[in-house]
């Protein structure tokens, strides 16, 4: 039994596809645009168009719908919760009533739309992380933030922190797994009892984990010092980003589709 073994959220799946090859900056801006687009629609037509776009993009990325859906499993609870809240707490014409609780047709609509919206948001965001390696993602963000350097934003440092954090997620998951097993072997009960008891039971896992994290941070700092790391000033890249016409064209298409879907829906509603 591997305790923490779910491939999910934020995982990179290497493949050879046009989306994998695209410039990370193009993908980041596109993802932001697509998510904005998802929040601008409020009618079935808009939602179905975005679902169509999502299917098209996941085909193009060779990731496939089943894999995409697996990545939303961790947030499914949140999405279900949103749906339920909306169904019960939206005022309108009641369809069914019992005491203070009532279900309205508006509520059902809102419930479906809000959960669809969240689902699409997570899926578009995951499409970005599934097709972009953590390094490329961090470098892309650095590059996009670099104009703000002039007003004092430490773009390079932010990107470096992101890279390091992402790099250590799998390592720390392994460490956690190992320490959990070690404490289980000493008779710890990690999955019984109420919330407070479980939290308390986790102390023997969390303290060693903290010690390890600080040790690792220290080692990493020494290793970086030893290689004369002094932040971003004057650093060059082994593989500089090249913004090709394909990236430009893709971005234009994404923005056009956001505008068209939003406008079209507004039109039809009138």
């Amino acid at each position: 039994m591997k305790f923490l073994d779910n491939m999910s959220f934020g995982q990179y799946v290497p493949a050879d596809s046009p989306i994998h090859r695209a410039d990370p900056r193009c993908k980041i801006v596109s993802a932001v645009a697509l998510i904005t687009g998802v929040f601008l629609v409020k009618e079935p037509l808009g939602f179905s168009s975005w679902i169509a776009v999502l299917i098209f993009l996941s085909r193009l990325s060779r990731i496939g719908i089943p894999m995409m859906l697996r990545t939303v499993r961790p947030v499914m609870l949140l999405i279900a919760f949103t749906a339920v809240i909306n169904v019960f707490f939206t005022s309108g014409t009641p369809l069914w009533e019992m005491g203070p609780v009532s279900i309205t047709s508006e509520g059902i609509r809102m419930g479906i739309y809000m959960s669809l919206r969240l689902l699409l948001l997570v899926l578009f965001a995951n499409l970005l992380t599934l097709t972009t390696s953590p390094m490329a993602l961090a470098d892309g963000i650095e590059s996009l933030l670099s104009p703000f350097k002039k007003i004092g934003m430490p773009a390079h440092d932010i990107a470096m922190m992101m890279t390091i954090a992402l790099r250590f997620i799998p390592t720390l998951l392994n460490e956690t797994d190992r320490i959990m097993k070690a404490q289980l072997a000493r008779g710890a009960d990690l999955d019984r009892g109420g919330l407070i008891r479980r939290l308390k039971a986790f102390i023997p896992v969390l303290i060693p984990l903290f010690v390890i994290v600080f040790q690792r941070a220290d080692d990493l700092a020494v290793a970086m010092e030893a290689r004369c790391y002094r932040g971003g000033g004057g650093r060059t890249r082994m593989k500089p980003f090249i913004w090709s016409w394909r990236d430009g064209l893709s971005l234009v298409f994404v923005i056009i589709s956001v505008v068209v879907i939003t406008l079209l829906e507004g039109r039809l509603k009138l």
Binding site: R178, I179, A182, A185, G187, I203, P204, I207, P208, I212
Partner: peptide, 19 residues
């Protein structure tokens, strides 16, 4: 649980599990 008591397991670098 009884098996885990009967068979003590010491992991690699067990000093890391001290808390």
């Amino acid at each position: 649980r009884e098996i885990r008591r009967k068979v003590g397991l010491v992991f690699q670098y067990p000093e890391q599990q001290l808390f």
